[in-house]
Design a protein around this nucleic acid. Structure first.
Lengths: 218, 218
DNA sequence: CCCGTGGGTGAGCAAGCGCTTAGGTGTCTG
DNA sequence: CAGACACCTAAGCGCTTGCTCACCCACGGG
């Protein structure tokens, strides 16, 4: 009976790794509701009715409302980290890897901005134990970007006086896309990703080096 | 009896323009609570008890909890816009004005990060009519920064292929400071402002021009 | 001295909250 | 076909929420 959601675990379909179908429908409904109204303003009844189920159905698949948020946050952070490490680990110059990282990271924050909004802005609603687990994932994201910057400085491609501060700023710039991006806007996720990759390169590439092409120039 | 809060309206003391003292205490308490837990997770009892008053006292000075948020958001956005226009309207090159704008805007977001967090991230909790009022203020902030960039391009100081997109990115970068900044961190608000001003200049200054000094170089 | 008025309180209301429980129903297995 | 099982629902429990209401008290003018 089950069709495509079994093929690739979380690759083809966004929430493909959430296996009982009812559990996935509830989780998708929760993402929408949390992104729209915020975690605290969302009621369990709202989540259930978006999924076309009774309020009690939620508690068959999740122990609490907070567990739903934790699952969403965990899967989202795993995906974000995976995107960054894939770009950082490929072959190429630091500039190429940084371009790739920013473009794909920003593209994800734009294309999946409802998920990203929950993932990035509802951290404080998590229970203490769950939050520390997520914070560790974020530290790894930070380390991944910092490594690219350090490589670029070492190879003379980049001129970055304050590597930790610039790392923070780059990630900050990317993450904030989830706050303002909306689908009715005039830019596609790809366009935003390309624009941001160009802006980040301008921030870090040494001034005696040519700016690598990102496709952002008119 | 009243001492300093009467001297300068909102200049000396952060919330000096909120005139009945009890109303100001409640508002300050609300800012703390909203920043810490978020608007929806904050109860009116929590606000009142932080201000050392009974739950009913809140409703003598404010009609609803949402009116409190609206007042906070309005005053905060007015202040933010004032900071940006002050920098944009001064004499000097586009680079100098942009440096000033970013440095002071970021400095405010860092130094008053509890207020800024409420102002920037609780917009969706406002009633529809109040939100449109605030959105108009934000559009003016955007126009102020865009004007500086346009001036710089016109004068040949800046190389900015996509002025609206870059404006968005600059403001986005500044605003996100409110999310991550905390007082226990190792950077002062001034240091963050200076770092960010330098990063923004690198994004926009034409590559055949020297980078103006911001104090961020080691 | 009394009384109106502005700023405050204790108690509590109606509504909505997260979550539970008892029970029903369709499907698979022996 | 009986029984076990996974899944879902209707009803509702105990509690908290935003907000109200009857009342109180310090204080200044006639």
């Amino acid at each position: 009976m089950r069709t495509a959601e079994r093929t690739a675990d979380g690759e083809g379909m966004p929430w493909g790794e959430v296996t009982p179908e009812a559990a996935r429908k509830l989780l998708v409904a929760a993402v929408e509701a949390f992104a729209e109204r915020g975690y605290h303003a969302t009621t369990t009844r709202d989540i259930a009715s978006r999924a076309g189920m009774s309020p009690a159905a939620l508690y068959i698949h999740y122990k609490t409302k907070e567990e739903l948020l934790h699952r969403i946050s965990r899967i989202g952070h795993d995906k974000a980290l995976e995107i960054l490490t894939a770009a950082a680990d490929r072959d190429g110059t630091a500039a190429e890897r940084l371009t790739d990282a920013v473009r794909s990271f920003v593209g994800w924050h734009a294309a999946r901005h409802t998920t990203a909004r929950v993932v990035q802005y509802e951290l404080d609603a998590l229970a203490a134990e769950h939050r520390t687990e997520i914070v560790e994932l974020r530290r790894r994201s930070d380390a991944t970007v910092r490594r690219i910057l350090q490589d670029g400085v070492r190879d003379g491609e980049f001129d970055v006086p304050d590597v930790p501060g610039t790392t923070l700023a780059v990630l900050s710039l990317c993450i904030d896309v989830a706050r303002w991006f909306n689908t009715q806007g005039r830019r596609t996720p790809d366009e935003v990703g390309t624009l941001y990759a160009d802006l980040v390169l301008r921030m870090v590439v040494a001034r005696d080096r040519p700016l690598p092409a990102t496709g952002a120039r008119k």
